[in-house]
Simulated assay, not measured.
Amino acid sequence: MGKGKVVVLEERVPKLKEQRRQRANRLLIAYIALFFMLLLGVVYAQSPLSNVAVIHVEGNHHIASEDVIQLSGVTKKTSFWKVKKAEVEQRIKQHPEVEEVHVKKRIPNRIDIVVVERKRIAYILDKHSFLPILDNGKVLTHAKRTIPSDAPILVGWKEGEAIQEMATQLANTPSSILNLISEIHYTPNSSDQRHITVYMNDGIEVSATVDRFAEKIVHYPSIVSQLQPGAKGVLHLEMSTYFKPYEADEGNDKNDENKR
């Protein structure tokens, strides 16, 4: 029995040694592979291959994508791994029309910039150009010249408390209502220093005041729907709400003025 056990152990020793050698070889190969992966990572990070290849801007309507990219400070020579999202977002927010911005890094080398612009709630006529007014009341004096099509035009206004309050009112007015307004004229009188005359796209004139304008103008569609089709006149939205049709001659005069 003793000799039998010795023979079995002697046969197993070479097998154990072979298993240890194979295990050691596998471990060595794993270390070598890890070393080369780290080496390749370092080389990649230091080479142009790790630079940003794509900068994609979305959500912008009035701000040019080129301007957003320039503000971001990211170029195709910038290492993808060195792009810090918070810093890029802070730089882009310096643009007066940017309300929010979100930067996303997509491996291997793409940067997505999602912009939320401030709403243009009106344009003010300044000499021969129209300057946009943002929903925070700021007038963009250096904006590119454009023909207003997405917001009403303010006529006869000067920068001050009245226009700031008007901007606040318009910012609280639904876009569906803003699209119905053509022009808003500042027409103060002895009884109301904040009186305005609003010309709607359907030809109706609205007499109102800056105060509570957003609250009252939202009822415009329902009020007009109760008028005779094609009716023209002045809708008063001051202390009380009522519609006064144009007199025949007055209506012709209004039409002549609109043509001029």
Score class of each variant (00 low, 15 high):
109 N>I: 03
227 L>T: 04
51 N>E: 04
207 S>L: 03
71 L>I: 10
160 G>I: 07
151 A>H: 03
40 L>Q: 12
170 L>Y: 11
226 Q>T: 13
134 L>E: 03
182 S>R: 07
194 R>D: 12
55 I>L: 01
255 N>K: 12
208 A>Y: 01
141 T>P: 02
140 L>G: 06
222 S>Q: 14
153 I>W: 02
58 E>R: 15
174 P>W: 03
5 K>W: 04
230 G>E: 14
80 F>T: 03
1 M>Q: 12
128 H>P: 00
190 S>L: 08
191 S>Y: 04
55 I>Y: 00
152 P>G: 05
96 P>V: 03
106 R>S: 15
117 E>A: 11
162 A>K: 08
187 T>M: 04
12 R>Y: 08
39 L>E: 02
229 P>N: 10
106 R>W: 07
238 E>H: 08
124 I>K: 06
76 K>F: 10
34 L>C: 11
66 E>L: 12
189 N>K: 10
239 M>T: 15
36 F>R: 02
107 I>T: 13
223 I>F: 11
205 E>G: 02
135 D>Y: 02
4 G>R: 07
111 I>T: 06
249 D>L: 06
9 L>N: 09
173 T>A: 00
97 E>N: 08
224 V>G: 09
35 F>Y: 06
231 A>M: 13
172 N>H: 14
220 Y>V: 00
67 D>C: 05
195 H>Q: 15
44 Y>Q: 07
33 A>I: 11
190 S>A: 09
47 S>W: 10
249 D>M: 04
62 H>L: 08
120 R>P: 00
53 A>S: 09
245 P>F: 13
211 D>W: 04
57 V>A: 03
